[in-house]
């Protein structure tokens, strides 16, 4: 039983007619995801890869009973598209775009909470429950079904981890890209209860990085509420402070806030296993299983 998406999820692709939207719709269909509708304003009535296209999320939901959406929409138009999805009361919205203004996210973060929409991303690879469905752009061939739940701020570090896991025969229950932005729709702490309650997940992997305090907040929650083993990796130990590393959220303040050392110390205190790198992380998993 997967908690966000599975083989029964009916997915909308917003931005289906764009280059990336079409390419990844094809990939998602190939994986077995039920993509039931596409939405591109002004292109309603058409079809992409056999999937009907609508002008609005509302109509797409009414005609196809869609219950989730993934947004392949450029950052400039992300706010409008996500706003529409949330106001149409879709229960799950996954946003991919890299470079969304933080003030836009600030508004969406609260709107989603108010409307009861689970907003994932932006700057995220999406969500995948291997063997069941994927909503996002991750290269699905490296994933395989299993009992490890992963949440990651970085797409590439998650791929890297999953790739080594497969070599060792370890699979995943659900992998979630929470994204690398300063104010994401959902953060580690929001995901932890889902993994804790998920019977398919035995070990939780958290792939964090420098900047912000999401790992510290997760540490506090883990100490009090999580019974399953947690393994964490914090990327960016050796990058200069006060330098933007690409992810808007991955920046250490000159006063040391957001440093890898602080995060690792607080996670260790909460009983979390700390990995040095992706390969080391998989070694730890092998010992735990």
């Amino acid at each position: 039983m997967s908690f966000f998406i599975d083989e029964n999820t009916k997915l909308i692709v917003q931005g289906i007619t764009g280059r990336e939207g079409t390419f990844h719709t094809e990939q998602m269909l190939e994986y077995g995801t039920k993509v039931v509708a596409g939405v591109t304003p002004g292109k309603g009535g058409g079809e992409v890869l056999g999937v009907p296209v609508f002008n609005t999320v509302m109509q797409a939901m009414q005609e196809t009973e869609a219950n989730a959406t993934v947004l392949f929409v450029p950052p400039k138009f992300m706010y409008k598209a996500a706003y529409e999805a949330i106001m149409s009361e879709i229960p799950l919205a996954i946003t991919i775009a890299e470079g969304v203004p933080v003030h836009d996210m600030l508004k969406l973060h609260y709107l989603a909470k108010e409307k009861g929409c689970r907003l994932i991303g932006p700057n995220s690879f999406g969500v995948i429950s291997p063997g069941k469905a994927k909503a996002g752009f991750m290269e699905h061939r490296i994933f395989m079904p299993g009992n490890i739940g992963i949440m990651s701020r970085s797409a590439t570090n998650c791929y890297e981890t999953v790739f080594f896991m497969k070599q060792k025969g370890i699979g995943q229950s659900t992998c979630i890209g929470v994204g690398g932005d300063m104010i994401p729709g959902s953060v580690f702490v929001d995901m932890l209860p889902f993994f804790e309650n998920d019977p398919d997940t035995e070990v939780i992997v958290m792939i964090g990085e420098i900047g912000g305090s999401e790992e510290e907040l997760a540490a506090v929650y883990i100490k009090e509420h999580i019974t399953k083993p947690v393994v964490a990796l914090i990327a960016g130990k050796n990058v200069p402070e006060d330098t933007s590393m690409g992810h808007a959220g991955a920046i250490v303040s000159p006063d040391g806030e957001g440093s890898a050392e602080k995060k690792e110390a607080e996670l260790r205190y909460a009983g979390v296993h700390i990995a040095e790198g992706t390969e080391d992380l998989v070694e730890i998993l092998l010992r735990l299983l």
């Binding site: 792939i207 990085e209 420098i210 050796n238 330098t243 790198g277």
Partner: peptide, 29 residues
């Protein structure tokens, strides 16, 4: 483009912030 260290000789090109940080971490190590 991110200048990292004037003493170095290696350039890392990658398709994401996370992978860049991981590469730098391992190379530095």
């Amino acid at each position: 483009y991110i200048p990292i260290n004037n003493e170095g000789n290696i350039a890392v090109i990658s398709n994401g912030s996370g992978m860049i940080m991981s590469s730098i971490d391992l190379i530095t190590k």
